[in-house]
């Protein structure tokens, strides 16, 4: 049995908020540099250069990569041998988020209810926390702050099992191309296939935090990832929708068994400021 103090979780979460907001993961920077090498259009090149220079400045000056520092979405894996002392895990994540967004001068973007008041909560809380219980003695927390520009371009549909892979691919490509420049391409495309209504959506978001350049373990899904990426980049949407050969940097599919009568598909898009950070306590 391992004991982790409430306060340690708060401090770790606060740190995650800052790292995620200021430091673009290196793999995304590498992918942007590769994209620049593939672009001929002067507008596309100008945009990609700005994205790369922006990431450099953000890290150096500790300025948020994007002013939309997002909804704080956490994937928390709690080892069953861990005991948390001094308070509730959910409260610690919430408190760490409030502290991080305040000490880091990150934008508070959350309104307290969706339809009527829409009053800003002031400290970017509450966060969204997806908790899973796992074996072992570790507490692993991944923060993936999600901006609205790309989140608003998400889509979900339940297909008939007979519709098959072509229908799934068409749906993803139509979603991404239809979003145009709004989700800040070049984007990363997360696709959740299978499970239930909510499982597919969650898988599509989890797919976004998978390391770039990794493929689905099943070769057929890995091939589908490559085929969808190729079609998206052949569309010509390009960086910021201004035309070019780089609309997406990667396509990640995550799957789950599903009901014999069902084929749910969710698409979640991440902007080129594909921010995430992980801590293990």
């Amino acid at each position: 049995m391992k004991t982790i103090a409430y306060e340690n979780i708060v401090t770790a979460v606060e740190g995650l908020c800052l790292t995620a907001a200021y430091d673009l993961p290196g793999e995304v920077g590498t992918a942007l540099a590769q994209a620049l090498g593939n672009e001929d259009s002067s507008l596309a090149r100008a945009v990609l250069k700005q994205c790369m220079e922006n990431a450099r400045l953000a890290a150096e000056e500790r300025t948020p990569i994007c002013q939309d520092t997002g909804f704080a979405v956490y994937f928390v894996e709690l080892g069953q041998e861990v005991r948390i002392e001094g308070g509730l895990l959910a409260d610690a994540v919430r408190e760490g988020t409030a502290r991080g967004y305040q000490t880091g001068y990150l934008r508070a973007s959350i309104v307290e209810e969706p339809l009527y008041g829409r009053k800003n909560t002031g400290d970017n809380t509450p966060p969204v926390v997806h908790l899973s219980l796992v074996g072992g003695e570790a507490l692993r927390i991944t923060l993936a702050p999600k901006g609205a520009g790309s989140e608003n371009a998400s889509a979900f549909r339940i297909f008939k099992p007979s519709d098959g892979e072509d229908a799934v691919a068409d749906f993803v490509v139509e979603t991404v191309v239809g979003a145009g420049g709004n989700p800040c391409p070049p984007t990363i495309i997360g696709i959740g296939i299978g499970g239930t209504f909510e499982t597919a959506a969650l898988l599509s978001k989890k797919a976004l935090v998978r390391p770039l350049n990794t493929s689905h373990h099943n070769p057929r899904y890995a091939a589908l990832e490559r085929a969808i990426l190729e079609r998206i980049n052949a569309s010509g949407v390009g960086p910021q929708g201004l035309g070019g050969s780089t609309t997406a940097l990667a396509v990640h599919i995550e799957t789950f068994p599903c009901h014999m009568a069902s084929l749910p598909v969710a698409v979640n898009i991440n902007c080129h400021a594909a921010r995430h950070a992980t801590v293990v306590l």
């Binding site: 945009v47 700005q50 994205c51 220079e53 922006n54 990431a55 400045l57 953000a58 000056e61 300025t63 948020p64 990569i65 994007c66 002013q67 939309d68 520009g149 420049g181 800040c184 910021q240 201004l242 902007c271 080129h272 400021a273």
Partner: peptide, 13 residues
Amino acid sequence: FAATGGAGALIAK
């Protein structure tokens, strides 16, 4: 005019 989305640190300068 289009500014580059996600280039907020660069634009701030």
